[in-house]
Amino acid sequence: RFRLSPAARNILEKHSLDASQGTATGPRGIFTKEDALKLVQLKQTGK
Rank of each mutant, 00 (worst) to 15 (best):
K47C: 14
A19I: 08
S16A: 11
K33C: 06
I30W: 10
V40D: 10
A24N: 08
R1E: 10
K43R: 09
T23Q: 09
T45H: 11
L42F: 03
T25V: 05
G46W: 03
V40I: 06
S16T: 12
Q41H: 05
G22I: 05
I11T: 04
R3H: 14
I11D: 11
N10C: 12
L42E: 15
A24P: 10
G22Y: 02
R3N: 15
T32V: 02
P6D: 12
A7N: 05
F2I: 13
E13G: 06
K14W: 05
A36T: 02
G22S: 02
D35C: 00
L42G: 11
G22A: 07
E34H: 12
I11Y: 08
L17I: 10
N10W: 09
L12M: 09
R9L: 07
R28Y: 13
H15D: 09
K38P: 07
L12D: 14
T45C: 10
P6L: 10
A36G: 04
L12P: 13
K38V: 06
L39H: 09
I11F: 05
D35A: 02
K14V: 10
Q41F: 06
G22T: 03
H15L: 01
R28L: 11
R28F: 12
I30T: 14
L17W: 03
E13Q: 10
S16N: 14
G46N: 12
R1V: 02
A7Q: 14
A19W: 07
A19H: 08
T25C: 05
F31S: 08
T32D: 02
G29D: 12
D35K: 01
Q21I: 02
G26I: 01
E13D: 13
K43W: 02
S20K: 12
S20C: 08
A19G: 12
F2H: 00
A36L: 01
S5I: 12
L42Q: 15
K38C: 05
L4M: 13
G46E: 15
V40W: 03
V40P: 08
R9S: 09
G46F: 05
R3F: 15
E13T: 05
V40H: 00
T25S: 09
T23I: 13
A8M: 08
I11A: 07
R3V: 14
L4P: 07
E34D: 13
L37Y: 06
R9Q: 13
K14M: 11
F2N: 15
S16Y: 06
E13H: 08
Q41G: 10
R3K: 11
D35S: 01
A8K: 06
Q41P: 10
Q21C: 11
R3W: 12
G26D: 05
T32N: 01
P27T: 11
E13N: 15
I11P: 06
L42A: 15
G29T: 01
T45G: 15
V40M: 05
A24Y: 00
K43Q: 13
P6M: 10
L39V: 08
R9W: 02
R28N: 15
D18S: 06
A24H: 05
K47Y: 15
F31A: 05
Q44T: 05
A8P: 10
D18N: 14
P27R: 07
A8L: 00
G26F: 02
N10K: 13
P6R: 14
G22M: 07
G29L: 02
Q41R: 15
P27A: 12
D18P: 01
K43I: 08
T23M: 10
A7V: 09
V40N: 05
K14P: 13
R1Q: 07
A19L: 06
E34R: 08
R28P: 06
K43A: 13
A36K: 03
R1N: 07
A36F: 05
E34S: 11
R9K: 15
P27W: 02
A36W: 00
D35Q: 01
Q44R: 11
A24T: 05
G29N: 06
A19C: 11
S16K: 14
Q21W: 10
N10I: 12
G46D: 07
P6F: 07
T45R: 13
T25A: 03
